[in-house]
Design a protein around this nucleic acid. Sequence first.
DNA 1: GTAATAGTGTCTCTAAGACACTATTAC
DNA 2: GTAATAGTGTCTTAGAGACACTATTAC
Lengths: 241, 241
Amino acid sequence: MYKSEQEYLKNYNVHRYDIPLLSIDIGIFTILNGKLHVLLIERGEFPYKERWALPGGFIDQSQDQDLHSSALRKLTEKTGVTTPHLEQVETVGNAARDPRGWSVTSLYMALIPYAPTSKFIDSVSDVRWWPYEQAIKLDLAFDHLELIAKARARLKSKTAYTIIPIHVLSSPFTLTQLQQAFEELLEKSIEKKSFRRRILSADVLEEVGQGLPAGGLGRIAALYQPKQGCEQHSFVWSLGN
Amino acid sequence: MYKSEQEYLKNYNVHRYDIPLLSIDIGIFTILNGKLHVLLIERGEFPYKERWALPGGFIDQSQDQDLHSSALRKLTEKTGVTTPHLEQVETVGNAARDPRGWSVTSLYMALIPYAPTSKFIDSVSDVRWWPYEQAIKLDLAFDHLELIAKARARLKSKTAYTIIPIHVLSSPFTLTQLQQAFEELLEKSIEKKSFRRRILSADVLEEVGQGLPAGGLGRIAALYQPKQGCEQHSFVWSLGN
DNA sequence: GTAATAGTGTCTCTAAGACACTATTAC
DNA sequence: GTAATAGTGTCTTAGAGACACTATTAC
């Protein structure tokens, strides 16, 4: 039909094909008062107007270089946070998940510390942090209940062999705070000595002084911040059986 | 603008938006003569006509229920295999990967035993198994070199804590054959006793008789097949540091 | 017998699990 | 002193790593 790639491309028109809708959704998690929270927005538009949903939307081909930057842009718009932990979880596509037709969404998971977002988010009317256990009881838009559960599952499984929970804390933090974050994300308690041995011998933290524990009572604790490159660390043993 | 969801959906037209192209690509792997092989097709159409590429293509909204079945359909069309190990690796999207414009592909990885495919594939002219090391030296279409490497990396990392290499063997097999598959996928040799202890105590195989080892020389070996549900098994320790 | 492959015995080493213990702070 | 929290000592246990050993087959 066409003689060359140039000729083919000149005559190519994407709208000739039946293309599924492609969106991005992000499960943004933090820990607040020791409990896992997830950021949801109240939809202002159809479909599922006025229902709670994961932040997300469509790719802007002129603004977004790639899928990851598109997810990062949406995250920053909602939280003001620019350097979070952000990873792709799974891409879900089927005929049933959107009333507008066959649709595909690329699900991302982000972890951010609560502190820097609180003022930013309070100033945006349709966005709020929900405790995870409450969030999954809301009647969420689309298949977002399923998506939120997939992101939660990824978070739990990576907690077992990485130091991912580090990203929900703001530096510096104590080992006890870090352990509590691990326990909340793992849904399991961890023996203190084992936890300290594991984290300290992984050499992923650096001590940056001392401070009173949260609550102001008890012995002064060592404060830590993540070392450069700690993100790459992967343990040989998984936690929690 | 619209009063109800019904009204909104009636007036909705997907072609009003700038939608990126969405495709599916599959890295299909097996082991042949002890070496990892990957299935490639020679493209018959623009763009990248006559270049080697991963099998893949567009979603058929009328045939495919969801992304996974779309990937399974393409895999079956090329190999004749209907029950492989098939998993999503990552979805890659950016402005540069396809000359037709912003495009997104959902990358899958499949593992199949060589045996049942050999005749089927020999009868299809544009498809062949390439040794992995040779495949990555071909001048592949699109960003398929990158995709193939991502699928390979997933394969390697899952070999360290699952029994995924089981899927490149046809049952029954000996423990030695299984160990060789693990070693090839891990790119590392494993100590025999450790390997046997690990696999046997995981209780994922059942013995189904005895047979001569491949080569016909040496002591008769126990033959095994995977137990139902073995797919779910996850080791607490990872292999290979 | 030899060559080849299957399979075992057993010691060492690493890191988790349990749990009692000591240390430091505010009051 | 007590309450509260930080941090340690040390024994046990699971499973990897090393490596020499025995067992079974064809010839």
